[in-house]
């Protein structure tokens, strides 16, 4: 592509898919490198810090679990912001962003669930507890899967974007209600016997690897998101070119 020299002058310039692709191409190697460095540092910290006197080695699961859980929520927030962009400003890249965030967000949500239950088995003695947090993350996971299924079921990208934007936003409004209801339900059904992690202040010894890992996972998210968005733009471009070619063949 000849437009590598095009400079991004303002945020609105990002609306131009060609400029976006060019920018993504320039940014991606740097982001990927940063992600790799952060992961190297973070993983080193993960395995060199001391084990917790109470949780033992399993505290190391937290260095993955907590960032994954954060990102599962951040992924949905990114989708909600994009949905707003689709419906309010009709930003041409917003629906691309929303569509590409869904599988990545679902991946991190699945990771949060898996590591959560791997942590729960030695600590709680069971793989799955209908704990308030686990349950809300599980419902979030279902919402992700529903949105992915919806996007796959529709052929027309523009229509799919708007319809799923509505759904994303209603889901976003609903998240606090779900969280609240699950908390209510949990206190109703479970006497407070569940070990709480957030109750005690976290020692800086554990905070450092946690934050680095959170940063590393966030970078990973955005690297993947940017790359997926670029691919999605290409995909639409290919579809447009194919249509054009078919039209050309029909009229000739």
């Amino acid at each position: 592509m000849s437009d590598r020299s095009l400079a991004i002058r303002s945020f609105t310039d990002l609306a131009n898919p060609t400029r976006f692709v060019a920018l993504a191409g320039r940014l991606l190697p740097w982001l990927a490198g940063l992600t790799a460095v952060l992961f190297a540092v973070g993983l080193t910290l993960c395995f060199t810090t001391a084990a917790d006197y109470q949780q033992g080695e399993t505290v190391r699961i937290m260095y993955i679990h907590v960032p994954a859980a954060w990102l599962s929520m951040m992924g949905y927030s990114v989708m909600a912001a994009s949905a707003l962009g689709t419906l309010v400003w009709r930003h041409p890249l917003a629906d691309v962003a929303a569509k590409c965030a869904a599988p990545i967000g679902a991946g991190f949500t699945a990771l949060a669930l898996i590591t959560g239950s791997l942590w729960g088995k030695p600590m709680w003695g069971t793989w799955w507890v209908w704990d308030a947090r686990l349950t809300s993350v599980f419902i979030l996971f279902l919402m992700y899967l529903g949105l992915i299924a919806l996007n796959r079921a529709m052929d027309d990208a523009g229509r799919a974007a708007k319809v799923s934007a509505v759904l994303i936003l209603v889901g976003f409004v609903n998240i606090p209600i779900i969280k609240f209801s699950v908390d209510w339900w949990n206190t109703l059904h479970q006497p407070a016997s569940v070990l709480r992690l957030g109750g005690s202040a976290i020692d800086p010894e554990f905070l450092r690897p946690l934050l680095v890992m959170a940063l590393a996972f966030t970078c990973l998210f955005f690297t993947l998101h940017l790359a997926a968005m670029r691919t999605e733009i290409w995909r639409r471009r290919i579809a447009a070119m194919r249509r054009q070619a078919a039209r050309g063949a029909a009229s000739a």
């Binding site: 919402m143 079921a153 209603v170 209600i177 779900i178």
Partner: peptide, 15 residues
């Protein structure tokens, strides 16, 4: 698909 999409959202009502 509609049921799958709506079901997570009606969890609070059920609870």
């Amino acid at each position: 698909l509609v049921s799958i999409l709506v079901l997570p959202l009606v969890v609070p009502v059920l609870i």
